[in-house]
């Protein structure tokens, strides 16, 4: 049982990074395809399409920071905490990146036909980013209560 708990602890340690990366891969791939598609249909504005399509990459950075914050010797005492925070924060980052990618794709698709709405069209993606930031900040805050961090 103790070994299993230790495994869960390690899983939680790496989960924010891995799940955040998966989310960013999915989000950037979706938005990136929309950007390439838009380039085929327009004569200008390529740079901003590519810029928007990179928005979901921030989640992997949040994941890396959470992973380093959680990083400590894994013991039976702190493994459940590491697992819970790591996996839940990772899931939040994964889904936020995924759906942010969809928002970015829609923004690119919409602003292609109506360039004047470009700024406003990325607002939904920014709101989704806000939720990822919540998950990130509170993972950092709550991780301070997990035992085992060297002082």
């Amino acid at each position: 049982m103790a070994d299993f708990q230790i495994i869960l602890g390690w899983l939680g340690l790496y989960a924010p990074m891995a799940l955040g990366a998966i989310g960013s891969i999915m989000g950037c791939a979706i938005a990136g395809q929309a950007a390439i598609g838009a380039m085929l249909d327009t004569e200008s504005g390529y740079g901003r399409y590519v810029g928007v399509s990179a928005m979901p990459s921030s989640q992997v950075i949040y994941g890396i920071v959470i992973m380093f914050t959680l990083n400590r010797p894994v013991t039976v005492d702190n493994a459940p905490g590491l697992f819970a925070i790591g996996v839940l924060a990772g899931c939040a980052l994964l889904f936020s990146a995924w759906y942010q990618g969809q928002c970015c794709a829609s923004a690119i698709h919409a602003s292609k036909a109506k360039p004047e709405i470009f700024g406003l069209s990325i607002a939904p993606a920014a709101i989704v980013e806000g939720f990822a930031v919540f998950a990130f900040i509170f993972a950092l805050v709550i991780s301070a209560g997990i035992p085992g961090l060297a002082s």
């Binding site: 999915m26 791939a29 979706i30 395809q33 929309a34 950007a35 390439i36 598609g37 838009a38 085929l40 249909d41 990618g101 969809q102 794709a105 690119i108 698709h109 292609k112 036909a113």
Partner: peptide, 17 residues
């Protein structure tokens, strides 16, 4: 790629109606 986003490239490359 998820079915919901399977044709992002194709749809984005088409001018809107």
């Amino acid at each position: 790629m998820h079915k919901k986003n399977q044709y992002t490239l194709l749809v984005s490359s088409l001018p809107q109606h």
